[in-house]
């Protein structure tokens, strides 16, 4: 421990006078392994032991493909909606002063704090044909509850704080001088916002989108109440996993879960790369 750091070639840890490294790291690793790593590798191992033919048959089953399409499609739309409105909400919260701003700011975190099942039954009641909002939309011929549109509504609710909370601190950091410089150079306010401010916000917006999207793809509790859960129409992937489990079809449940995990990790990776690229481009 006390040997000079410069002389040691490869070393796992830099020397330090602070005690407890072995204990805390050891405990953390043991706990992480037991709770997260072993169970997750169990899933992958089970899936691998299925064999390629069986796995492929489950993966290309029409119901599986449809459920994946629905999950990823609705999560994408909801995240896109949240990018627009979440950025607007963050802008209003940072730039404008109005009474009750703190209350509004606190409310944005409601979807983090409210149990998803509660959100699910509340949204379903609201958007059902007799509900407060559903009864207003029905004359217009718009049905939300028990349709794919309902899934989008639930996922917009769930994903909103992810976008607001990633974009908000970046808007707070914007240097007013940049806007003043743009204005001095003759840009209109609209040009300043779209050409100067938005590119700077792009990495944060992308991150918020990615977080909302990833959460939306896996979301279960709030969606199953409002979706109607019709196979091929409004059946999300997590629900299909639960259905296969209830049928004791562990092989199918495992395979679908593995596909979903792989797709979400892959997508997060792609989005991270996009983010690194935008950061490089716009600083």
């Amino acid at each position: 421990m006390s040997s000079a750091p410069a002389q040691a070639g490869w070393q796992f840890k830099k020397p330090s006078v602070i005690p407890g490294f072995g204990l805390t790291l050891g405990f953390s690793l043991a706990y992480l392994t037991l709770i997260i790593l072993i169970p997750l590798s169990g899933l992958v191992w089970r899936s691998a032991s299925l064999g390629w033919t069986d796995f492929w048959a489950i993966a290309t089953d029409r119901r599986t493909v449809k459920a994946l399409e629905i999950s990823f499609g609705t999560a994408f739309i909801a995240a896109a909606v949240n990018v627009v409105f979440g950025t607007l909400v963050a802008w209003v919260l940072v730039r404008y002063r109005f009474p009750g701003r703190r209350v509004v700011d606190a409310m944005v975190d409601l979807p983090f704090a409210l149990p998803t099942a509660v959100a699910g039954i509340a949204l379903t009641t609201l958007y059902a044909s007799k509900g407060w909002i559903g009864s207003l939309l029905e004359p217009l011929g718009i049905k939300v509850a028990y349709t794919p549109l309902g899934i989008v509504v639930a996922l917009v609710f769930i994903g909103l704080p992810f976008v607001v909370r990633t974009v908000q601190p970046i808007i707070e950091e914007i240097d007013k001088e940049v806007e003043e410089a743009a204005a001095t150079l003759g840009a209109s306010r609209f040009q300043t916002v779209t050409k100067v401010l938005f590119p700077g916000l792009a990495p944060a917006v992308t991150t918020g989108f990615a977080l909302a999207f990833a959460r939306g793809v896996g979301e279960y509790g709030s969606v199953i109440f409002i979706a109607g859960n019709l196979p091929y129409v409004s059946e999300i992937t997590p629900l299909l996993i639960v259905i296969r489990l209830e049928e004791y079809d562990y092989a199918a449940a495992t395979a679908i879960a593995t596909i979903m995990l792989a797709l979400s990790f892959g997508m997060l990776l792609v989005i991270n790369l996009i983010q690194a690229w935008t950061r490089k481009r716009y600083g």
Partner: peptide, 18 residues
Amino acid sequence: DLPFSVSPVISGLVYVLL
């Protein structure tokens, strides 16, 4: 951070498999 990117349903499923 891994558990944040895993669907809650899968978080339950891994224990059923185990």
